[in-house]
Computed example of a mutant assay.
Amino acid sequence: MSEREEHSKGGVYSVKGQEFSRDSRYIETRIVAEPRDGTDDYPVVPNRYRLIAAYACPWANRAIIVRELLGLEDVISMGNPGPTHDADSWTFDLDPGGVDPVLGIGKLKEAYEKRFPGYPRGITVPAMVDETTGEVVTNNFPQITEDLYFEWQQYHKEGAPNLWPGELREEMEEVMQRVYTEVNNGVYRCGFAGSQEAYDAAYDRLWTAMDWLEERLATRRYLMGDQITEADVRLFTTLVRFDAVYHGHFKTNRNKLTEMPNLWGYARDLYQTPGFGNNVKFDQIKDHYYIVHTDLNPLGIVPKGPDLSGWDTPHGRG
């Protein structure tokens, strides 16, 4: 079996056991308040960088949410590729002429290639692009949101949430690691399993974690207690896609999210919080998964269901 790359997420199928394995090699450059000697660090400068993030992509959706939660809209511009793309790159299908109005490019690949000619890996979102050069700075999605909090604090809005509380950092790192490996990536492990054995193992791992989350959220409003943290952002972008695409398209179908009282209430609580639900576009999410993943859905038919109207119903977790 040859390795196949899913360019929108940087994942590959490994040969061993036909199990989905994500390529986690990202551009390590950072944007920091005080660039370190001997590094490729870029300096924090307002109105210099453009966040390229597709609403369809859960990894990019994190950055979109954090940017708004922290009030960075006026110092970091944003461009949004369309939900579908070719095997080569994310594209700016939603913009007039199919061109990003600030960067003047039709494919995000152009920003990658400008800095790294012949860039060898998938063209992924989110990506931070230097508007002054048109070159990609980084696509390291977990580092991007962490740096938006710690390195851009001078530009945070008044009352911005503390997404990385120091007293909870150690436990939060453990929770986020489990959420990433077992849930964020776990749904992909189910969806892109290359054998029944690999799928069965992935399914069991996912639902062990989902049951753990259901139990954890029975005694606290958010993952880390009574305040929203980065951990909640990271879990939310998977939960909000669960019934819409993962349950059917990725075969994660033991339960719907709506059938898990604590997780469903928690997800609605976040969805109804400014910065979260207003940055969810279900039509783009469904178009992306059902049209781009031709190996899973060869005809590209996008289902009309499920009914997603329940996201605005009272959550009862206040």
Rank of each mutant, 00 (worst) to 15 (best):
F150W: 02
L72Q: 01
D93K: 15
A127H: 01
A111K: 11
D283E: 09
E3Y: 14
G17W: 07
E170M: 15
A127G: 03
N297S: 05
Y149S: 00
M1V: 13
G305S: 11
A63M: 07
M260H: 11
E173R: 15
P120R: 05
K304M: 01
P298D: 05
Q196M: 13
H85D: 00
G106R: 05
V137K: 00
P43H: 07
Y13M: 14
D295L: 12
G194C: 08
E197A: 07
T132A: 12
E197D: 08
F250R: 09
S77R: 06
P274G: 06
K256E: 10
M1H: 14
F282N: 08
V245K: 09
N140K: 13
P165L: 00
V233Y: 09
P35L: 11
L163F: 03
G316T: 00
E5R: 14
A111N: 12
G166S: 06
Y203K: 11
F20C: 04
H247A: 06
F236T: 03
K109E: 12
P161R: 10
P58L: 02
V15S: 12
H247W: 13
Y155C: 00
A202D: 11
D100V: 08
E28Q: 15
A33P: 10
L299E: 15
V75F: 04
F92R: 12
G194R: 13
M176N: 11
K16D: 06
G38N: 02
A56E: 10
E135K: 14
P306N: 06
A63T: 13
N139Q: 11
F20M: 05
N278S: 10
T132G: 04
D283I: 09
E173Q: 15
V32D: 03
G38S: 03
Q154P: 06
I52Y: 09
Y222N: 04
V75E: 04
H293T: 02
I65P: 04
V302S: 01
Y222W: 08
N140F: 14
E167F: 08
W164A: 09
D100Q: 11
S195K: 07
N262P: 06
M210G: 02
P83Q: 14
L270I: 08
Q154Y: 12
Q143C: 00
R189P: 04
M1R: 14
K114R: 15
Y246S: 02
P261N: 11
R220F: 00
V137N: 02
D295K: 13
D287C: 10
V136H: 10
D287T: 14
S8A: 09
M210Q: 03
K16N: 08
L206W: 10
E167A: 07
A218Q: 15
E34M: 00
N185R: 06
G318W: 14
A53P: 08
P83G: 13
R30C: 02
R178W: 08
E73H: 13
E167D: 13
Q177E: 14
N47Q: 12
H156W: 06
M78F: 00
